[in-house]
Design a binder for these strands. Structure first.
Lengths: 343, 343
DNA sequence: GTTAGCACTCTTGCCTCGAGAGTGCTAATC
DNA sequence: GATTAGCACTCTCGAGGCAAGAGTGCTAAC
């Protein structure tokens, strides 16, 4: 479906004005603002065509037009130029994301926070599972009679830990020895590739202190499993109070439901990792809860491997150009920052 | 200011009905529901008295009465009986808070979540700074060339960690040796009592590997400082959507502002730790942002020492009796659980 | 001290009406 | 054939009016 030049200009005008004002856009307003050398009547005819094609719609006769989801889709696919953040904003992002950062989850956290602040939309991040991440150390630290803490440190500087019970017969020296055994056995192994079977094999090799090993291995397994879980961060939801579409509680509620249900977001963004900005507009989202919202998101990679996801959530009437541009810039920054962290 | 029996009954009736329905309560409704052997006209006279005393107010002539903040205050101070959760709910709380818990912050997290689920209000927790908590181990783990992670484990099973840069000249063996030195020097020391000066002294004792030690001590100090920070957890804010007072966005917004500003809550609850349920109703809160909300909170202690705080946030029209009762019960459970964790 | 009765007040929902904005259509114009 | 001016038409939105409903305050009787 191709549009001639004038239709494209009019479609763009409607979208820009509507995104800005949240009001239906009339033919007069368009000639007044974008004065394109023809009269309002001509614009009206064109708009009627665009409506017939499904790109515009009317809330009621005698209101102006608003872009349909299909209209936004066409614009996003065929006409839109991404808008990168200005130099000032880029400096802000770079500073927030890279400075005073000590591990990856902090990078993600800061990225999400600063991105939502910058764009005025809610921002989410699905954390990376870095397969390049290797185990560096496994320690069993006694903390009280009968209790110890298992601490795993990875090359990215992530620290996983959990408590276990230990029999009284095991002393501090035994634990230290065990720590060394574990560390030696697992050091250099990629977190993702450690399987339960590997741990089983390890158990067989360490038959001596059965009980501790049993528990330690059990919780090690759990720890590593949990590190493989994708964590979801969501920030800036309060921004949305400024959007007029959230005056009625229904959309607001659907948005805030995301706060409680991590799974919704994971379902929205799916598994594919293409390192491009993708846009889902309103009902294009298969997930019922957010059919009234739009999601703009992208994947980041580290050392050529799949990382996590970053995205912005807003009303259908969203500044897709800015959202997409910001995500492009931020992805660069995040990838670089993480690369430096784990290298 | 004393009230005779009948006024007390009427005040209670107004409060109970209003809390339940969120509608102004009329004289007829009271005789119909609580039939106290007098006519509506008599109740009207009494209500006029109560209004004159400042316990009730009218949204407008010819609506029913609603309790004023002062009315709630009087009720809470002089008449209210706390309502503990039923056995079913207690079992739920105990299960949620005590089972499958591995460290204190998890206890707090779970407590907050289950309490907000149970009461239907938003729940917050200001984390404990446990002075009984001792350092058990300090480890320096090399993760990449020039990078190491400092891991501190305490007797309560908390694990603090941060990354530091190390000069290339320092090998894994050196770091291990340092770990032992640090651990030996700090083991058994209470986290709270470690001061910068102690760390300075330690530095002087370890003059040998200046640079690493410098950095390690620096980040150790930072780590311990940050562990002394009170962390704030807030859960169940979505519950509030069900309350009719949040139909207009202003109160909702003030509530959700808490999500972003931890400090607000800290300012509300202050520092005093009296291990009693305290109630702040509406404008009694000095903090501007939540003058339209009520806060019910308490402190918990561990081994006779100040722990953290737990509280519920709701509309002024709140079931104070249930909130207070639940907090009493939950405090018991939390104190016991933490005691078991650190002992 | 209590109650019944009644006039009064205020909200709420519903209706109507006019202003305003924008359209679609037709006929004239370029 | 595309463009435009003109005009009737439609729809929303806010204001104003009205009746119903709920609850009160006051007075006079019990």
């Amino acid at each position: 479906m191709d549009l001639d030049e004038r239709k494209r200009i009019i479609l763009e005008a409607v979208i820009r004005d509507y995104v800005e004002t949240a009001e239906p856009v009339g033919s007069r307003a368009i000639v007044r603002k974008h004065g394109l050398g023809v009269s309002a009547a001509t614009v009206r005819n064109e708009m009627a065509d665009l409506e017939a094609m499904g790109f515009l719609e009317q809330p009621h006769t005698s209101a102006g037009r608003i872009p349909s989801e299909q209209g936004f889709r066409y614009y996003v696919d065929c006409m839109m130029a991404k808008e990168e953040p200005g130099p000032e904003d880029l400096r802000f992002l770079r500073r927030e994301i890279t400075e005073r950062i000590s591990d990856i989850s902090e990078v993600i956290q800061k990225t999400s926070a600063s991105l939502s602040q910058l764009t005025g939309y809610a921002c989410f991040a699905v954390s990376a599972v870095l397969s390049a991440d290797e185990i560096k150390s496994v320690q069993l630290i006694p903390v009280q009679a009968g209790k110890a803490v298992v601490v795993v440190v990875t090359s990215a500087g992530e620290v996983l830990h959990t408590r276990i019970d230990i029999p009284d017969s095991i002393g501090a020296g035994d634990l230290q020895e065990l720590s060394q055994l574990f560390t030696r056995a697992l050091k250099g192994t990629r977190v993702q590739t450690i399987t339960r079977t590997m741990l089983e094999t390890l158990r067989d090799e360490l038959l001596g202190r059965r009980e501790v090993i049993e528990r330690a291995l059990q919780s090690l397994g759990d720890l590593l499993d949990s590190s493989g879980e994708e964590r979801v961060t969501l920030t800036g939801t309060l921004n949305m109070f400024n959007e007029p579409e959230f005056k009625n509680l229904s959309k607001l509620r659907s948005l805030l439901a995301l706060l409680q249900e991590n799974d919704i977001l994971k379902r929205v963004v799916g598994d594919a990792a293409v390192r491009e900005v993708r846009i889902k507009i309103g009902r294009e989202n298969q997930v019922e809860e957010i059919k009234e919202l739009s999601v703009v998101f992208t994947d980041y990679e580290v050392e050529g491997e799949k990382g996590g996801k970053l995205g912005l959530i807003g009303p259908v009437r969203m500044e897709y150009w800015k959202a997409a541009g910001s995500l492009d810039s931020v992805r660069e920054i995040v990838e670089e920052t993480i690369r430096r962290l784990i290298k």
